[in-house]
Write a protein that binds this DNA or RNA. Structure first.
Length: 858
RNA sequence: GCCCGGGUGGCGAAAGGGCAGACGCGGGGGACUUAAAAUCCCCUGGGAGCGAUCCCAUGCGGGUUCGAUUCCCGCCCCGGGCACCA
């Protein structure tokens, strides 16, 4: 690749030198405060937010720039529409990623991060973003995390933060607890190490209490469908019922095997069931077992129960004869790593020795424990319906438990054998279900729940998959959780006046195997007077999850200059909720859900007037390079600095937007950028020629028509983030402008410069200044000049090309006046030999689409 | 397995019931030049024909329609998310 050399042009004008004009305008924007937003001003505020980056040591990723440029174009466009636009940016610099990198290079994050941030800011400034850097936030700055700690206190105050000992995902390599979201296929998302299970005291936020609202509001948000769908799946609503099975009764002793004769595929190990029967003894009377099911219609087919090994009722249900086996199994699952528990599909389990009564059939059915039932979903217990659930069928097969058909599809009846779990519901009906036989599934569900409910054995219930948010991290690089433990007074919140709890500058920030944060090793920090009684007390040593930092940063930006509040109520009312948020879909279920949750809590606390933070969200696509995902190991990472050096920020930005649909991403190819650069070169020379030939040549109506069509196209494409087609339209106009020998007129180029401005701001400012040299307006930024007005009359075509089809096949084209009538069009079409030869006699039918097409059916 | 995207020339892609391939890259030819680069102009989905023209073509198979890349049904493949969630 060779850098384009400046082309000598006529007269004294210099050629297009991106490096020089980009330097010039970035400096001028700084001097003149062009990008500074007066937050008190303007009756049409527009908050254009982009997801702030994690400032890695490798520097700005092209994916960051792709995201930011898309947001910047939209923001600049809104400004030209007359909005006061606020486009802030900051750095999400806490967290395990930074900390691990610091450990790797042996440098303290307190020294490393500021350097990374400085490098990022330098790279970002070169990209020509309309960012008001006065409002920059850095989550690791005490003036920021003071308020992150404040957010925690809001949660604590409202009973939404709580501590519990929990089985957590423990990464033995990073030596830390991971959120469920950070475990990918049973392995740590950072290092890929298989995750183990540990029991630790953890801080949680009660996000699951908000599941119904978080789900319901999605219907009304102007968000990318892909993002909303990901959140719906994550929240995971299931409609069903809780059913009660009375445990430990003596009647129906043989009930567990009563229907065994109907089982066909599930009796592989009948012996186990015999053992179970022999060992069965009397369990404690009256233990009620609640199960959750989405298929209450299949309750007549529930032939056994399964409890999670951790279920609190297991002790009471275990008979003396089975205690040894049950305890051994529970011991094993407690220590089992989460990988094999979650990923292995092999069915294991142990019989408790007890039975429970199926509330529908009255039969006594055996109660088992198995690790395929999870304590943290539903009630931690299930009714097993092996006939109609794949997992239950498999389990029944392993342990020789009876399988009963209670759902029959077309061509099946109550006696049809089950070779596998039958899970269809469409067009099926209930069988072997007493008075409910013959009902379709949906009606069966309703009627059976009503019937059982009348006997106190069922409640219609909704369950969510969403778990509470574990925010504890036994690490160093995060905001300390502002809590103090006093032997006298118990758990104490750090009073707001004592915030921030500063993260101390300690040299040994490396986590060890203790499961406790490195902060615990520093007595001078760890010991603190109790805020209540003044006695020596201990600080909480966990720091909070990075996702808490980013769950509220959009509230901080407009108030970033204030140090007495997290966010100023008046400013917040004026500028929020965020009008436009653009970011990657990798944050669809973490950051975006947590932000919605925090906003909802602050709304309920009366601190915000809105409960949804982002009015409009669009997920941008991913950029790959030469058809492959960018990675250091592949060596195909695009370094923005190199490209900006070679082609200029304007060409780089515009190419990023041109290479594919913004919301889908695209393929970065070095060759492709030259086309965009050529476009900017031509823009430059066209404007220079127009200036130098001032007054020469009348405007060409065809060019003006094309111009207005382009104004319309670009003006509708930008709000839809259809940047690639907007650029294509401007290129088309450029081609029309340059067709023939004529010199472009001033009016023909001036508007184009405005259309290009959001994409290539530096060249646009430079050309605008040159077009208005000497005029009073020359000191104004092009971004303070209103967007060009579209004139429909000027854009209208006088004549159109009418496509003529015969039986749907194109047989000719006619140039006709725009308002041509059907009769005139048919007459003209039949006069064309290319059409007439396919038409004999009068057409049977004529389809006429005015302005587009004529189809003759013969 | 379930839920989202997506599959169109040599390549990145347009068109979301109405001319398939806009725009750009790459390629071919030409102009300018002593020459090259840059720039400018023309051509560029496949096939048949000297030609005007004709046939084929938007992952595969059906359907609806005067007309389908677009809508419907059933598959296949690629990318992403969720997943022993009862």
């Amino acid at each position: 690749m060779t850098a384009s050399t400046p082309q000598p042009l006529t007269g004294e004008s210099a050629g297009y030198d991106p490096a020089a004009i980009e330097r010039k305008w970035q400096e001028r924007w700084r001097e003149r405060g062009t990008n500074a937003t007066d937050l008190r001003d303007g009756d049409r505020p527009f908050y254009a937010l982009m997801m702030f980056p994690y400032p890695s040591a490798e520097g700005l990723h092209v994916g960051n720039l792709f995201a930011f440029t898309g947001n910047d174009i939209y923001g600049r466009f809104q400004r030209m529409q007359g909005h006061t636009v606020f486009e802030p940016l900051g750095f999400d610099a806490f967290g395990i990623h930074s900390e691990n990198f610091a450990l790797k290079v042996g440098e303290h994050p307190l020294r490393l991060i500021p350097r990374n941030i400085a490098n990022f800011r330098r790279q970002l400034e070169r990209a020509g973003l309309m960012v008001d850097w006065r409002y920059e936030v850095d989550t690791t700055d005490p003036s920021y995390y003071k308020w992150t700690q404040w957010v925690f206190l809001q949660m604590l105050e409202r009973g939404l933060a709580y501590k519990k000992k929990a089985a957590v995902n423990w990464c033995p390599s990073d030596k830390t607890v991971l959120a469920n979201e950070q475990v990918i296929n049973g392995a740590c998302e950072r290092c890929g190490t298989p995750v183990e299970q540990r029991f630790l005291e953890q801080w949680f936020f009660r996000i699951s209490d908000f599941a119904p609202r978080l789900l319901a509001n999605l219907d009304h948000l102007d968000w990318s469908d892909s993002t909303r769908s990901a959140q719906r799946n994550w929240i995971g609503r299931s409609d069903g019922a809780e059913l009660i099975f009375q445990g430990g009764r003596e009647e129906g002793r043989e009930g567990g095997r009563r229907q065994g004769g109907t089982a066909k595929g599930g009796t592989a190990k009948g012996g186990a069931s015999k053992v179970a029967t022999a060992l069965r003894g009397s369990a404690e009377e009256g233990t009620a077992i609640k199960v959750f099911t989405t298929r209450p219609d299949t309750v007549f087919g529930a032939t056994y129960l399964v409890l999670a090994p951790e279920h609190p009722a297991v002790d009471a249900l275990t008979t003396p004869a089975q205690r040894g086996a049950v305890n051994a199994y529970r011991e094993r699952t407690a220590h089992q790593d989460i990988v094999s528990r979650r990923v292995t599909r092999e069915k294991t389990g142990v019989f408790t020795g007890s039975t429970a009564v199926n509330p529908a059939t009255g039969a006594a059915i055996p109660v088992w424990i198995a690790d395929y039932v999870l304590m943290d979903y539903g009630t931690g217990a299930i009714m097993a319906v092996p006939g109609h659930d794949e997992r239950d069928f498999e389990f029944a097969g392993v342990f020789g438990l009876p399988v009963t058909r209670v759902i029959a599809g077309p061509g099946q009846d109550a006696a049809t054998a089950l070779a596998a779990a039958y899970t269809d519901t469409e067009g099926t009906r209930l069988v072997n279900s007493g008075q409910f036989d013959g009902l379709p599934v949906e009606e069966g569900k309703r009627r059976i729940v009503e019937w059982l409910a009348s006997r106190g054995a069922a409640t219609a219930t909704v369950n969510f998959r969403l778990h509470d948010w574990c925010i504890s991290r036994q690490r160093y690089w995060g905001p300390p959780i502002p809590v103090i433990y006093c032997d006298e007074c118990g758990l104490q919140a750090v009073p707001e006046r004592d915030l921030p709890v500063l993260l101390p500058d300690i040299p040994d920030f490396k986590p060890d195997d203790s499961g406790v944060s490195p902060l615990a090793r520093h007595a001078e920090w760890y010991h603190v007077p109790c805020p209540e009684c003044g006695q020596t007390a201990r600080r909480e040593t966990d720091v909070s999850d990075t996702f808490l930092d980013s769950a509220w940063y959009f509230l901080r930006y407009p108030s970033a200059l204030r140090h007495d509040v997290a966010f100023d109520p008046d400013t917040t009312r004026k500028w929020l909720p965020v009008h436009s948020y653009i970011g990657g879909n990798e944050h669809a279920v973490l950051h975006l859900l947590y932000s919605r949750f925090v906003t909802m809590v602050l709304h309920d606390a009366g601190r915000l007037t809105f409960e949804e933070p982002f009015t409009r969200f669009r997920a941008h696509g991913m950029i790959v390079r030469d058809g492959a995902k960018m990675s250091k190991s592949r060596g195909n990472v695009v370094n923005p600095d190199e490209y900006i050096n070679e082609w200029g920020a304007d060409a780089f930005r515009t190419y990023l937007m041109f290479l594919g649909p913004y919301e889908e991403g695209g393929d970065f190819r070095d060759r492709g950028i030259s086309g965009v650069k050529r476009f900017l070169d031509r823009l430059w020379s066209s404007v220079i020629e127009a200036i130098e030939s001032a007054g020469a040549g009348a405007p060409d109506p065809a060019v003006i028509r094309k111009l207005h069509q382009t104004i319309r196209k670009v003006g509708t494409d930008i709000p839809q983030l259809s940047y690639n087609t907007a650029i294509a339209a401007m290129m088309e106009y450029m081609n029309a402008l340059r067709a023939g020998e004529r010199t472009p007129g001033r009016a023909e180029v001036e508007t184009l410069v405005q259309l290009v401005a959001p994409f290539a701001p530096h060249i646009a400012e430079e050309l605008w200044e040159r077009l208005h040299a000497g005029a009073a307006s020359s000191r104004a930024s092009i971004f303070d000049v209103p967007w060009p007005a579209f004139d429909a009359a000027l854009a209208a075509e006088e004549s159109i090309e009418l496509v003529v089809q015969v039986n749907g096949k194109v047989r000719g084209r006619l140039t006709v006046p725009t308002g041509v009538t059907q009769d005139a069009a048919v007459a003209a079409a039949l006069a064309e030999p290319s059409v007439a030869r396919f038409v004999t006699g009068t057409p049977r039918k004529v389809i006429f689409v005015p302005g587009r097409l004529l189809n003759l059916v013969v």
